[in-house]
């Protein structure tokens, strides 16, 4: 019986680690081939490069315009994510602490709107903001992300703020804090763990998003990292070494983000999914 159980455990380990390698193999293959020339890649994608040269990375970095694309992504992601968190937390706070009719209407509309897929509104969205001359701007994109991100964020905060006892806030008000001060000094700090989960989910969404920025950001110097990488692959479609290097360059910032916040990311995904 014991031998059988040990054998079963061995089988499980072998199967899990084999699958683990299969899951990660695409990334290893891209990494391996990013050091090779086109000819070396075609003759054997599994072979090791004759020398570990960073030349592909340097060339790809320059030709794709990595720095401006990275900065565009960074600016758009940071402002959107912070804006969504702050405005949504304030809104959810008002919705929980007052029982005005408009709150209920808004909250219901926001929760219901979470069912609407982006594709159902992308055409009129482009039409409206195009006719206002607001396309091709990073700030318009940030504005739209605030719109697309706030429903879920308000919903997430709403659930958490309900569980905060209001005595703390009353004490602060008696001490002479204004409503806004109460929110920023007492309530918002208490929401830290929800805010962190929300920020992680939104960073992964906005940093990696493609369809919305591809519709809004038209000129090349506004493009985000995924857009730039995609266009780079269209231009240098047969120079495999460069393509692999550009993919690694695009993947690297996300991996660094992940390593830095590993536990929080898994928890954030769990919370987000369960609430949704």
């Amino acid at each position: 019986m014991k031998a059988l159980r040990r054998f079963a455990s061995l089988v499980r380990h072998v199967a899990l680690y084999a699958l683990f390698l299969v899951y990660l193999s695409p990334f290893f293959l891209v990494l391996l081939n990013s050091f090779k020339s086109r000819r070396e890649i075609i003759s054997n994608p599994f072979g090791f490069p004759p020398e570990w040269s960073l030349q592909n990375f340097i060339t790809a970095f320059q030709r794709m315009g990595f720095v401006p694309a990275f900065l565009n992504s960074l600016v758009i992601t940071v402002f959107s994510v912070i804006g969504i968190a702050v405005f949504s937390a304030m809104t959810a706070y008002l919705f929980v602490r007052t029982d005005w009719r408009i709150n209920k209407v808004m909250f219901f509309a926001m929760v219901a709107s979470m069912l609407i897929p982006f594709q159902a509104i992308m055409i009129p969205l482009v039409r409206i903001y195009g006719s206002l001359g607001m396309l091709n701007s990073r700030w318009s994109l940030v504005y739209m992300y605030l719109g697309f991100g706030s429903s879920f964020a308000v919903f997430l905060y709403h659930g958490f703020i309900k569980s905060i006892p209001k005595e703390l806030e009353e004490a602060a008000m008696i001490d002479g804090c204004s409503r806004l001060q109460v929110f920023f000094r007492v309530v918002f700090p208490l929401l830290r763990s929800t805010t962190l989960s929300l920020i992680i989910l939104n960073v992964l969404w906005i940093w990696n998003d493609f369809l919305l920025p591809s519709l809004v950001l038209i000129s090349a110097n506004n493009r985000t990292l995924p857009l730039t990488t995609f266009h780079f692959h269209g231009t240098y479609s047969s120079d495999y070494g460069l393509l692999m290097a550009s993919l690694m360059l695009t993947i690297l910032p996300v991996i660094i983000f992940y390593v830095a916040l590993q536990q929080h990311i898994i928890r954030g995904v769990m919370e987000g999914a369960i609430k949704a």
Partner: peptide, 20 residues
Amino acid sequence: FAGPTTLVFATVIILPFLFG
């Protein structure tokens, strides 16, 4: 408290949805 959220929600989600 809810002004900015209401504005973006109305102009980015509701308006395009109805106009759509």
